[in-house]
């Protein structure tokens, strides 16, 4: 079994899927000859040609809108938005068009398309290369939102996303691209969408996370374990559709729930998890549902001092766990 970085898992899976299915195309800014600014599409144009790996103009709405049309007419586009921070010119095409096409045509038209985009901070990317955008899109019925945290899931979830009959937003935390390695089987496995993973079993506190935070949650859980606190960690993997049963079953067991997310706290994705837990398993709770999240400033500042202040890290999560455990 090969050990691969996260970005290698993305790149090799794209190539494997394009070999398997000639209807798959890749389009985005710099995805061709350069192979993408993070090299996620490196080598694809050389292997599959300019017709299937398309360098687009700097027009994000076009990247998504043309993908919608191509999906209508028999292709399976995998679009890349160079940074998640730049996705907003395409918001209308995602929210009003891609997400609504099946519903508004009463199931006459489905859109098998994927929008991949790097997101997240901690890489000195400042306000416009660090943003977590998931909450804008998880609010929208009709688009699936996927956030892998390991090379294994990056491959399995990307396969599922590409083969899915509906639009999928595939968020890749850019800090994981080269910092995380893991075993990735060369089999044709898939990781199903809508399925969370329990990445550490525990009994006293449930910590729910995704993306980079799934790693920080595990590190925090390991630290507090030395203090005798037993933490169960859930990596959501798919934010929508949400695997509610895995979340609720864990909180029924532990009675305490902490959600860690990197996005701004107010109205962030963790608020929906908190509401779900409060509505569905209130009788099991022994402590307030807690969020550890980014501060409510408009973006991640550049200075390393300020960026460290912004970012959720294992220390902050561990502090939250200790408070909950002591409650």
């Amino acid at each position: 079994m090969a050990v691969r970085t996260f970005i290698e898992a993305i790149r090799t899976t794209l190539a494997q899927e394009m070999r398997r299915d000639p209807s798959i195309i890749v389009l985005g800014e710099d995805v061709g000859l350069k192979g993408g600014v993070f090299l996620a599409t490196d080598g694809l144009q050389a292997e599959f040609g300019e017709a299937r790996v398309i360098d687009t103009p700097l027009t994000e709405s076009m990247i998504v809108g043309v993908s919608i049309g191509a999906a209508i007419n028999g292709l399976r586009p995998v679009a890349e938005i160079q940074f998640a921070d730049f996705i907003f010119p395409a918001f209308n095409q995602i929210q009003s068009q891609a997400a609504r096409m099946r519903y508004r045509t009463n199931n006459a038209v489905g859109l098998p398309m994927v929008i991949r985009t790097p997101y997240g901070g901690g890489v000195h990317g400042a306000l416009y290369h660090s943003q977590s955008v998931e909450a804008f899109f998880t609010h929208i019925p009709g688009i699936k939102v996927v956030v892998p945290s390991t090379p294994l899931d990056a491959r399995g979830l990307l396969r599922s996303a590409i083969r899915d009959p509906d639009p999928v937003l595939f968020l890749e935390h850019k800090k994981l691209y080269r910092s995380v390695r893991g075993e990735v089987p060369d089999t044709d496995y898939v990781t199903p969408l809508g399925s969370a993973a329990i990445t550490r079993a525990g009994t006293q506190v449930t910590v729910i996370a995704y993306g980079l935070m799934a790693h920080h949650a595990l590190e925090a859980a390991a630290r507090v374990a030395e203090e005798g606190i037993s933490v169960e960690v859930i990596d959501l993997r798919t934010l929508r559709p949400l695997d509610t049963e895995t979340v609720l079953n864990s909180v029924r067991k532990t009675g305490k729930c902490l959600i860690a997310y990197e996005d701004n706290r107010f109205g962030g994705y963790g608020a929906e998890i908190a509401a779900l837990v409060a509505e569905e398993v209130f009788d099991y709770l022994d402590a307030p549902v807690t969020r550890i999240a980014g501060p409510d400033v408009p973006g991640v500042p550049y200075s390393h001092v300020l960026e460290d202040w912004f970012m959720v890290n294992p220390d902050k999560i561990a502090a939250g766990i200790r408070k909950l455990a002591a409650y």
Partner: peptide, 13 residues
């Protein structure tokens, strides 16, 4: 844009 995407697929296919 959807029309252009349909046309892109028509050309590629």
């Amino acid at each position: 844009l959807h029309a252009v995407g349909i046309a892109l697929a028509a050309k590629l296919r």
